[in-house]
Design a protein around this nucleic acid. Sequence first.
DNA 1: CTGGGGATGGGGCCC
DNA 2: CGGGCCCCATCCCCA
Length: 255
Amino acid sequence: MPRSFLVKKYFAKQKPNYSELECQNEMRKFDIVPYQLPNCPPLFPSGLVWDLSVLPALYLPTAHSEASGTSGPLDLSSPCSLSSSASSSGEEDEGRSSDPPSPEPVITYAPRQRMKCTGVMAHVSPPEEEEERGETPAMAARPAFLCKHCPKEYTSLGALKMHIRSHTLPCVCTTCGKAFSRPWLLRGHIRTHTGERPFSCPHCNRAFADRSNLRAHLQTHAEVKKYQCGVCSRTFSRMSLLQKHSSSGCCSTLG
DNA sequence: CTGGGGATGGGGCCC
DNA sequence: CGGGCCCCATCCCCA
């Protein structure tokens, strides 16, 4: 199931320093505007760029429920297993995000074009057909790289190869045998075996094995959390919590 | 039930 | 072009 549907565009070469990313002050510095559900009146109309209208599609079941590792023209099953002892070799990368954020970075969010298996094999339409749909012939001429395992279509071979890895899962944990699509996913998994937690919260010193989990944790320290109900102004650290809050009746009863 | 943590996945971007 | 890292997301589980 594709899980990324948001495009981030911020300080391309500047990587955030999570040790300095203090929730309350830093979040304001990053100009993060609380997210609101669509049926709630906006409290922060100037900064809202998230759109939950795409959400129903997010929960559609995907068609590629099983992935086979059969060989083929694009079989990328070259193993990249890492042993637990080798996990430390990948940890130096965690220190690469020590660059301070630019003075006034702005994080903008926009709905990411969601790709999902439709169950119908993609194809390249004739130019006239594309024009009828408002597309230029140049757009129609884009090559289509089709995944042999699922109906996904990509405009570049590299993107397709990357996707195929999610089917072939070439990175195998030597400890438990679990397979992953990318080496860094395997490294993160190996931390679950080693107990290594290289990401620490600057507020409570709680350590995390994953940077994303630290980021989510930082939200719990924030006065104003990232996701806000437009009706009761209550803020939540996670979108799922806001969604639960909304579905529980806050917005429907008050709005 | 709610909130938070752990684990994991995928596309985009940079080198 | 590929590797690595980024961000964001979700699911599951637990307190």
